[in-house]
């Protein structure tokens, strides 16, 4: 997956996305209304304070997958600055899926935090 490759080649401190994570992020972004691919990519970068690493190109297979599963629907439209763009909208099934997945992720994150405990003092 291109999301797992470091863009610069040297060690990158930013988080590499796990399979399935991107789907949730996309659905979450679309919760606020229809958006096109570039908008989604930007939104994810901004809301995660640049912590999450997303190749814009890697977004499209995920969009494709979600569209096939009928979690989002797509239609060509016109952007604010008058460019043609393909807009994605959350479907009812997508909304339900997001609700389920968010609670799963929160539980997982909380559990991981409990297991790992406070930041340990590492030797180095």
């Amino acid at each position: 997956m291109s999301t797992q490759r470091s863009r610069t080649g040297k060690a990158d401190d930013r988080l590499v996305l796990m399979q399935g994570t991107l789907d949730v992020l996309i659905l979450r972004t679309l919760l606020f209304g229809a958006e096109h691919g570039q908008g989604i990519a930007r939104a994810i970068q901004q809301t995660s304070d640049g912590e999450l690493l997303v190749d814009h190109g890697a977004l499209y297979p995920a969009l494709q997958r979600l569209e096939e599963k009928k979690l989002i629907s797509a239609a060509w439209g016109t952007s604010a600055n008058n460019r043609r763009a393909r807009y994605y909208t959350l479907t009812k099934a997508g909304r339900a899926h997001l609700a389920r997945q968010s609670s799963r992720w929160r539980r997982l994150a909380a559990a991981m935090a409990r297991v790992l405990g406070p930041e340990p003092e590492l030797g180095s």
């Binding site: 096109h36 691919g37 990519a41 930007r42 814009h56 499209y60 460019r83 763009a85």
Partner: peptide
């Protein structure tokens, strides 16, 4: 799909 990719790049450049 190719058109969508082009649109993406155009929007990004605008931005």
């Amino acid at each position: 799909f190719a058109a969508e990719v082009q649109a993406h790049l155009a929007l990004e450049i605008d931005r």
